[in-house]
Design a protein around this nucleic acid. Structure first.
Length: 513
RNA sequence: GCGGGUGUAGCUCAGUGGUAGAGCGUCACGUUGCCAACGUGAAUGUCGUGGGUUCAAAUCCCAUCACCCGCUCCA
């Protein structure tokens, strides 16, 4: 172990192992691949499922204890990918994203391109500064005129100035434009479509009335069914609704393996609370979720909590307890971190929006019988990425080790490992294969185990090291005499002899299920 | 979206206009006595894709796709 400190984890090597062993492959590879889409091979499918099942178990089946010492109440849900298009108007995903927008890199403001007008000085030779303002905004226009007056030392209220819509200006001239709230020229980006939702048409007619979207987040399915859950499940605030499912974003630049994909899977809780308890529940979930990632094998050295700064907060979270990201130090972000899960106080924004857009208004407020109080619950949302979590598990597990034949092994937490144990006859004769097969049959009903009789024992160990299999059970000559097998530990390479009847209990103890 | 780089067998790569190769891996048979042993045999490629130049293209030209790096983006 001494010199492993020098052996840094290289993302190319991790990607290569994922390909070689069947964790992750590019989608549609035989057609040249498609950018931003990834398939899970046999080992990857098991790994991701183990992650999702652990989440489901620890959130839905066996939720953590709340501040009162009793388990918090969480119910599951499974909603559709395509929803009524009005959902995305209510959520704020459609507004401003069907029109080209420009960003001001100086001020971080964003404007609709067709709402900006640009003042130019007629006496200018075509290379001087121009000044943008927001159409119909008198204050903004006055500001632009003042800036022009100052720059060219003329009175812009009387002098002849040109007014041009921004879309009519060549992008080459953007370097001359001073943004409506900016002080320097050249900080406006080109107009860009920010329609990052995939769209499709429902029904045979392809027209605007039939346009629908693939959900860009799973959360809205929960919000739209909140009232049905309340009406049918006898839940009382505080309680949560949990869901796993695919979401889609037409990212400008998919990058970093599966980290930013266009199709991805989320594991989300929307936890509904009384508004006065927001800060406490926000901290509760932030800390619980951080601990959970540690519990499935990510190391504290590579995991951090980071609170968002004010100007970073999403539109639904500008006020309130805040947002924290649980971040992992991926090889491609190191020494920085990349987001695994966001824990956000979304206030009552979403429920209010749906109440408003559905036209039902205040009738949709939650009623607390006990307190005789009517209100829109606030929401604390722990929203995790299943694919990012899987990627973090892969990166964490990847352990170079030149001392072993495979040069590398995958140090998965036993609960996450795609294969829990390999079962090998030391040699393929003398009754050993039969004993191995019996053991395999005894274990396969409970655990993902693999029986391998091919080639020599060293090669089989090496294969299991790259698959991240924590235990290898070998049937040898002694087994036939005294009914014991050896169990090899993936990490220490040590072997212990265990009675063949005790193997299942041994695995149960180590895997923790 | 912009700039740069890369693309030959499952992997690592060689091949600069003239018959597509090596090592490893994979598969079969034999062997095997605890960490990728050995022997014999076998399969595997529209040289990323499409077009062009040429008697002839993996090789030269154009386009396109994918991946990597840096910007940009991430509601």
């Amino acid at each position: 172990m001494g010199d492993t400190g020098k052996l840094t984890k290289n993302m190319d090597d991790i990607v290569a192992l994922c390909r070689r062993r069947g964790f992750i492959w590019q989608s549609s590879e035989i057609y040249g691949g498609i950018n931003g889409f990834w398939d899970y091979g046999p080992l990857g499918a098991e790994l991701k499922r183990n992650l999702k099942n652990a989440w489901w178990h620890d959130i839905v089946r066996c939720p953590p204890l709340g501040p009162d010492g009793k388990p918090v109440r969480i119910v599951p849900l499974d909603t559709t990918i395509i929803m009524h298009p009005r959902v995305w108007e209510a959520s704020g995903h459609v507004a401003g994203f069907n029109d080209p927008m420009v960003d001001d890199k100086e001020t971080k403001h964003r404007y609709r391109a067709d709402h900006l007008l640009v003042l130019s000085y007629k006496g200018d030779d075509g290379s001087g500064e121009m000044f943008a303002f927001v159409e119909g905004d008198e204050e903004s226009e006055a500001k632009a005129r003042r800036k022009l007056s100052k720059r060219y030392r003329v009175d812009a209220s009387t002098t002849d100035v040109g007014v041009t819509p921004l879309p009519a200006i060549a992008t080459a001239d953007y370097a001359r434009i001073v943004g409506p709230d900016a002080t320097k020229p050249g900080t406006l980006t080109e107009p860009r479509q920010f329609n990052l939702m995939f769209d499709t048409y429902v029904g045979a007619i392809r027209d605007e009335d039939n346009r629908a979207y693939l959900r860009p987040e799973t959360a809205q399915g929960i919000f739209t069914q909140f009232w049905n859950v309340v009406d049918t499940q006898r839940v009382k605030v505080p309680f949560g609704i949990a869901q796993q499912g695919k979401a889609f974003r037409n990212e400008v630049t998919p990058r970093n393996f599966t980290f930013r994909s266009r199709e991805f899977e989320q594991m989300e809780i929307e936890f509904f609370i009384h508004p006065t308890e927001a800060a406490d529940w926000y901290e509760y979930w932030r800390d619980r979720r951080y601990q959970w990632w540690l519990s499935i094998g990510l190391s504290g050295a590579n995991l951090q909590l980071r609170a968002h700064s004010k100007d970073e907060l999403a539109h639904y979270a500008r006020e309130g307890a805040g947002t924290s990201d649980i971040e992992y130090r991926f090889p491609f972000t190191a020494p920085g971190f990349g987001e695994l899960e966001g824990v956000a106080h979304r206030s009552d924004y979403d429920l209010r929006q749906h109440a408003k857009y559905s036209g039902r208004g205040d009738r949709m407020m939650y009623f607390d019988q006990e307190k005789n109080e009517r209100y829109f619950p606030h929401v604390v949302e722990p929203s995790a990425g299943a694919d990012r979590g899987t990627l973090a598990l892969l990166c964490e597990a990847y352990t170079p080790d030149p001392s072993r034949p495979s040069q590398v092994y995958m140090k998965f937490h036993p609960r996450m490992a795609p294969i829990k144990a390999g079962i090998f006859p030391l040699v393929n004769k003398d009754g050993m294969p039969e004993v191995a097969e019996n053991l395999y049959n005894a274990l396969r009903t409970r655990y993902a185990v693999e029986l391998d009789v091919k080639q020599n024992i060293g090669k089989r160990y090496a294969r299991m090291d790259e698959a991240g299999t924590p235990f290898c059970i070998t049937i040898d000559g002694d087994t036939l005499k005294d009914q014991t097998v050896t169990i090899r530990d993936r990490d220490t390479l040590e072997q212990v002899r265990v009675n063949i009847g005790q193997v299942k209990a041994f695995l149960a103890d180590r895997i923790g299920e």
